[in-house]
Design a binder for these strands. Structure first.
Length: 748
DNA sequence: TTAGGGTTAG
């Protein structure tokens, strides 16, 4: 019976139910005193993943009265093989109380379990034992300990052990190099690599791979690819690991030639059955913009693996093919493929980055319905969607969600929240998020400054700029875009020039297109149109549409025809299909009563098949975001909206409001002009908000075009008449209206 | 019978 049981339990095909039957038999026949049999039973339980750590402890103490070191060894190896690392540690901890002393062979497996579990404390205990027993002199024990310290981010402890080793083989050198690489300490890794060779130890594939990862992960793409070439020259044959280590760098350099060579090599060596190689290849082609090659790699894969799918989806959306990405995603979801958090996050990010904000919010709900837990990457990928559509309620919910999940000191989440609150009109909340951050980075500083700039708060933007420098954070070119645009919002020419001049002089940052665009806006808005034009003429590179657009738009504000025509002449070829530019020029003609010229531009638009971009606005009421189109009658509450607007108009007229009909630049009767003004989407959205929210509640509206003068005046009046704070975000900035006054001071 | 390396989401 004993023999049969033993054989049955040792069989590699033994199942859980067989283990249970054997267990029952062992109990019945009182065979628990046999160490070998009991150990085999426990190992089988371990392999079938059906024993919890407390159960194990209990079983060990009650049923293994006289175990030997051998029974523990085989048990520990079995647990490690079946990835039951906590069991390894439990079993190891049962040695000492039984008077058993571990041998050198048992230590590496135990230490590795500590490393995998990041169990530093237990690892240190094993280290103490290794020191006391002298096993630390064993090179395999020492390299396990080094690895354990590296996994626990204790590089100094690892290095101490490394330096004390009497002899160092290629394994331990490789481990140290990879450890430094992973922590971003590339100089140290490079140093060790050289030192190793001068000590006469030749690197192997693992050593090279460790270096390649370190270089690539730290942005040293050129050096990574260079090292890869050296490696080939020295006669090393890259394996799958090497290929997936170097491909990310090839992708970041967009080096298609190298990429295709590696691809060819991979095919020849049969490496494309390796999932890491496939996803790295997809990622590389995606980054290089080679959608066709990427799709071919994906199509040729026999079985779609989750990592490759994720790389493929990201590659598609990186190349603007969001719809294709969603189609592939939906198809595989319907085929019941198991999608993970990376897949969901990837499609959420591509939606929120490509104007599919509502879809992003829906995907976030779906992923949870599918039982996939959002993580610290999902949250900052989703938050921009709320900012984009000013969905404050949704944004706050996601903020709460992240707090509930314990994700609050993440710098990406923090920065995304700052941006979201600023875009939803709540600049104070944005600032509070910034103040709560433990370690704001450049992106966080830029987010809060861009928030202030967007709200026209130049003083606060400049204050933050100085605080940032005091904190030791260096500005980048985006920081200056924020500062300059804040100056432009407020017509602060002197300050604008000061910061503009300091860019290259004090910070070594050369002005880019957007900085010129800010300066042109700043100068031209305050009426210094000629000065703005001189800046354009002195630019060291060809101005783009933003620069000319800024000039044309100010020419429209100041009705400057001659410069407006110059700007338009440059702008039209750059953006032949942008109706806004034609509208600006035709409006300048209209404002001067030059109806023939105005007509000519309208005809030009018509012949190009262009129509004026329809104006629309969004407003969030409760959980629903409503979209209103200018002049659109389809909203179910439209009758009530127009009635309310009529009433408000009457009240405004009583208090002296005159419709600013010069902003209806069409050759129509005054009465009709007034009618057209009433249909502007931002007004409709504000009134919809008034009708559906309780008195005193603030309203926020976003508009896809710039707010017109009349809407600005009317909504200011509404804020006073109705006692509401109203936030309007147009393409340019925020208008915070309260008690009949706007935060922009009527300058925009 | 024990030690070292890899891809994909912000």
């Amino acid at each position: 019976m004993f023999h049969v049981l033993s054989q049955c339990l040792s069989s590699p095909t033994a199942t859980l139910s067989q283990a249970r039957q054997a267990h029952a038999l062992i109990l019945k026949l009182n065979l628990f005193s046999d160490t070998h049999l009991t150990t085999t039973l426990l190992s089988l339980y371990a392999n079938t993943h059906s024993l919890s750590t407390p159960q194990l402890s209990l079983t060990l103490s009650s049923h293994l009265p006289h175990p030997t070191l051998f029974s523990f060894s085989s048990l520990i190896q079995a647990f490690a093989r079946s990835s039951h690392f906590p069991h390894v540690l439990t079993a190891f901890s049962h040695l000492a109380p039984r008077g058993l002393v571990s041998d050198a062979f048992l230590l590496p497996t135990t230490i590795k379990s500590c490393a995998i579990l990041r169990a530093l404390n237990q690892g240190q205990q094993v280290h103490a034992f290794a020191l006391a027993s002298g096993f630390v002199l064993d090179s395999i024990v020492a390299s396990s300990l080094i690895q354990m310290y590296l996994k626990c981010d204790r590089i100094v402890d690892a290095r101490k052990l490394f330096d004390r080793m009497p002899e160092r083989d290629v394994v331990v050198w490789s481990a140290m190099i990879a450890g430094y690489s992973r922590l971003g300490l590339v100089d140290e890794a490079r140093g060790l690599f050289g030192e190793m060779r001068s000590c006469g130890v030749e690197p192997n594939l693992v050593t090279w791979n460790g270096m390649l990862v370190g270089l690539g992960n730290n942005g040293l793409y050129d050096e990574a690819v260079g090292m890869f070439r050296v490696m080939l020259l020295e006669g090393f044959l890259p394996d799958g690991s090497t290929v997936s280590c170097v491909l990310p760098s090839v992708g970041c350099l967009e080096d298609v030639v190298m990429g295709s060579q590696v691809h060819g090599y991979g095919i020849k060596q049969g490496l494309l059955c390796d999932k890491f190689v496939v996803s790295a290849m997809l990622d590389m082609y995606g980054k290089c913009g080679c959608v066709k090659e990427m799709s071919r790699v994906f199509d040729e894969v026999e079985e779609v693996e989750i990592g490759s799918l994720n790389a493929f989806l990201t590659g598609l959306s990186r190349n603007g093919m969001v719809d294709s990405a969603l189609e592939v995603f939906n198809r595989l979801k319907d085929q019941k493929m198991e999608l993970n958090v990376v897949t969901w996050t990837s499609v959420i990010a591509s939606c929120s980055q490509n104007g599919k904000d509502f879809e992003a919010l829906e995907l976030f709900r779906d992923m949870q319905a599918y039982g996939v837990e959002p993580n610290a990457v999902t949250i900052p990928s989703l938050i921009p969607a709320c900012g984009n559509i000013s969905a404050l309620t949704h944004g706050k919910e996601i903020h709460c969600f992240s707090l509930r999940k314990g994700i609050f000191d993440d710098v990406y989440v923090g920065s995304a929240l700052i941006d979201m609150y600023a875009k939803c009109g709540r600049i104070q909340l944005a600032r509070r998020c910034f103040n709560n951050m433990l370690a704001p980075n450049l992106v966080s500083w830029n987010a809060v400054m861009s928030g202030y700039a967007m709200h026209g708060k130049a003083k606060e933007t400049m204050e933050m700029f100085h605080m940032m420098q005091q904190s030791g954070q260096k500005p980048d070119s985006i920081t200056f875009t924020c500062v300059l645009s804040a100056c432009a919002q407020n017509g602060l020419t002197e300050e604008g020039w000061h910061y503009y001049n300091s860019m290259s002089k004090e910070h070594g940052i050369e002005p880019k297109m957007e900085h010129y665009a800010c300066m042109v806006t700043l100068l031209s808005r305050v009426g210094k149109l000629e000065e703005a034009y001189s800046i354009i003429k002195e630019m060291p590179f060809e101005p783009d549409a933003c620069v000319w657009g800024a000039l044309l738009s100010s020419c429209r504000v100041h009705n400057n025809l001659s410069l407006g025509e110059i700007a338009a002449e440059k702008l039209f070829p750059l953006e032949p299909a942008n109706p806004g530019n034609y509208v600006l020029l035709s409006n300048i003609y209209a404002s001067k009563g030059l109806w023939d010229e105005e007509n000519r531009i309208r005809e030009m638009m018509k012949s190009k098949g262009l129509r004026k971009n329809p104006g629309y606005s969004w407003i969030e009421v409760g959980h629903k975001v409503h979209m209103l189109l200018a002049g659109d009658q389809s909203h179910p509450q439209m009758k009530d909206i127009l009635e309310k607007l009529d009433k408000l108009n009457m009240e405004m007229k009583k208090s002296g409001y005159l419709p600013k009909t010069n902003f209806v630049l069409q050759d129509v009767e005054e009465q009709d002009k007034e009618q057209i003004l009433c249909g502007h989407s931002e007004k409709l959205a504000v009134v919809l908000g008034l009708l559906n929210t309780s008195p005193g509640q603030p309203l926020q509206v976003i508009k896809n075009l710039r707010i017109c003068d009349d809407c600005h005046a009317v909504i200011k009046a509404i804020s006073r008449l109705e006692g509401r704070e109203i936030y309007i975000r147009d393409t340019n900035r925020f208008h915070h209206m309260k008690d009949g006054v706007c935060s922009c001071g009527d300058f925009w």
